[in-house]
Design a protein around this nucleic acid. Structure first.
Lengths: 226, 226
DNA sequence: GAATATTATGTCAGCGACTGACATTCGGCA
DNA sequence: TGCCGAATGTCAGTCGCTGACATAATATTC
């Protein structure tokens, strides 16, 4: 899906996307934007797909040709962000530890996303609103967790690849991916509930994640008593 | 007039359930059982709520008075098991480490569930079938992950309680609960995909979980190279 | 530039999950 | 026996989602 549609056979090189593709991208963005607005306004459950479609002036049927279900349009932004994270991870130097590579990748991802606040994929403030919406909407939370878990599988694959391991045999890739996902999830939770601690920007989030990582050792340590 | 078999209203301590309660419990169990059978037979998506209700000879409306949605009836057994795990955790001696208490609790839970499981809430083999069903059914997986995550919150509360910590301030309870959940999930996954390793019984599962826990340190360690 | 092939979109009909409202029946209790 | 409340059934309706078919828009070929 992320890969661009194949260019015509006569010219496989770079090519300005045709009118068709641009139009599709526009309506897709419009759907995501309209859905985002409506969800935050009157809530996820009280927004019908018909309303979203009507806001963009397409039929309901068309909506479902862009998104498999109602949850997908709500989580589209997160999905893109996670894909970006994985791209970051893939391009980390092989000299780094798995854990180092992971931590560096989120930092990099958040930094980049913090800057490039392009139209549809709203800035970091939009992310915070989205986190809250997800956390307070059972259906969305479920879908989000499933997506997240699926990404962990991909991450584990990348890690195994980096280290030249067989992911079927070695448990470490999946374990690290899972633990990493857990730390991220709790960080996101803290961010949306605790009011982001101090800084509400991407730097605040990065700091929060680092803090949670630093607590990982102590949490697993034998005793919590001082 | 003979002495009533049911507990008199004046004595709320007595536990003999009235006919009403027993009947409710029976239809509930029947619904769970019928759903389980149908789901494993023709799949989750291809089983309608009407069919489940018909199998127990109740109306669809009644089904939805017992279960909030179709997923709930499928995950009812897991929900009970997780509640049982939390009970185990609550009654662990306070002398134990948080991590020790957690590990001891799952072992205890699996052991207990491995033995005394009659009729409806099938034995351990049923659990394996259920894990597979969940893992291969996106909707169920999403619902299951949400439930699991909710349980982690509860677990974190219990842990914070044991150690006399404020769960809002201290990050460790939630972190440990989340990491623990991650380890469990991967263990369950290995169990259902890898064919339970060696032993398919509860002992096999316990061993699997232990093995994953033992890999936790190495996975988080700096380098994976030998 | 017209003919043709693709592809996106709209319309329609229909299924299944889920809910509120109301009537009815059943168990508990005096 | 008779009353009360809880459980159930029935009905109508909304909403998410899908298949099938027709139509309109874009791309391609000559």
């Amino acid at each position: 899906m992320a890969a661009p549609v194949t260019a015509p056979a006569t010219d496989p090189g770079c090519r300005v996307l045709g009118l068709r593709e641009r139009k599709k991208q526009r309506t897709r963005d419009a759907l995501v934007g309209a859905a985002h607005t409506l969800f935050l306004d009157r809530g996820y459950g009280d927004t019908t797909v018909d309303e979203i479609a009507a806001a963009v002036d397409v039929s309901q049927r068309t909506f479902f040709r862009y998104f498999a279900n109602k949850e997908e349009v709500a989580l589209a932004v997160m999905a893109d962000a996670e894909d970006f994270f994985i791209d970051c991870l893939r391009s980390r130097p092989v000299g780094e530890n798995p854990l180092q590579a992971m931590r560096a990748s989120i930092t990099e991802a958040w930094r980049t996303l913090g800057e490039a606040r392009g139209s549809s994929t709203g800035g970091v403030t939009a992310a915070l609103e989205l986190f809250e919406l997800i956390e307070t909407t059972p259906t969305l939370l479920a879908a989000h967790l499933r997506r997240t878990t699926e990404q962990e599988r991909v991450v584990a694959g990348v890690l195994a690849d980096r280290e030249g391991l067989d992911p079927a045999t070695d448990l470490r890739p999946r374990l690290l991916a899972a633990v990493f996902g857990a730390v991220l999830r709790i960080s996101h939770l803290s961010w949306s509930t605790d009011g982001a601690g101090a800084d509400a920007g991407p730097d605040g989030m990065i700091e929060l994640i680092e803090r949670h990582f630093d607590q990982l050792g102590p949490a697993l340590a034998g005793s919590w008593r001082d």
